[in-house]
């Protein structure tokens, strides 16, 4: 394809490696970047570098943060014996926004998904066991999405933690069946947390 710029081809290729970006979208993003006003691309490149350099998982909960510890973990008023397990940092933000939760979080960075080849070993399970032990947690609330992966992951966690004697609960099913946490508004999510139930009981 001699009529296409090699550089554009390379950029498009790089962009399609991103989740949810197909060829068409990659091309559109490329044209957008080319036409963007003065300074935009330079700023973006710098920002990407800075994010990559300064943002990393919180050493305690796995939430993404600048520095060693995230805002929640750094807050002394939070109850460390109450741990809310979420799939991703974005879910943490959703629960935080309800304003009803005063414990700390544990970000798994995904869910168990046999079809995508993701097993418990690829998630932050060992860290969870560790935290439950060191903080002598009394309750772990599993707030993964209410779909098959989220529910099986919750069940796995309940079994994993059962020798430790901690109560493991699951947020209630007021949420849309098989839906995403993002489908729920703050009130619904707050209700789901309030109505949580012990797993396997």
């Amino acid at each position: 394809m001699a009529w296409q710029s090699k550089l554009i081809g390379r950029l498009v290729n790089e962009l399609t490696k991103m989740p949810g970006v197909g060829r068409k979208t990659a091309q559109r993003l490329t044209y957008f970047l080319l036409k963007a006003p003065e300074g935009y691309v330079e700023n973006l490149a710098r920002l990407l570098n800075e994010v990559k350099q300064h943002v990393s998982p919180c050493r305690e909960c796995g939430n993404l943060t600048e520095g060693e510890q995230c805002g929640v973990c750094a807050d002394d008023t939070r109850n460390r014996r109450l741990i809310c397990v979420v799939e991703e940092p974005a879910d943490l933000t959703l629960v935080e926004r309800t304003g009803e939760f005063n414990g700390v979080y544990h970000v798994l960075m995904g869910v168990i998904s046999p079809l995508e080849g993701i097993g418990p070993d690829q998630l932050r399970m060992a860290e969870l066991v560790n935290r439950v032990q060191t903080h002598q947690a009394v309750e772990v609330i599993v707030a993964t999405d209410p779909d098959v992966e989220g529910d099986t992951t919750a069940y796995y966690i309940a079994k994993l933690l059962s020798p430790l004697g901690v109560k493991v609960t699951r947020i209630a099913r007021g949420l849309p069946v098989g839906g995403d946490l993002d489908f729920a508004d703050e009130v619904t999510l707050a209700q789901a947390i309030a109505g949580r139930q012990e797993i396997g009981k």
Partner: peptide, 22 residues
């Protein structure tokens, strides 16, 4: 489908269990 994927690669019991349950 997920349970069959686990069986296909002979996953350990602890990984099968949640899928048995569901």
């Amino acid at each position: 489908r997920s349970r069959n994927a686990l069986l296909a690669r002979a996953a350990p019991r602890a990984e099968m269990e949640p899928y048995d349950h569901e």
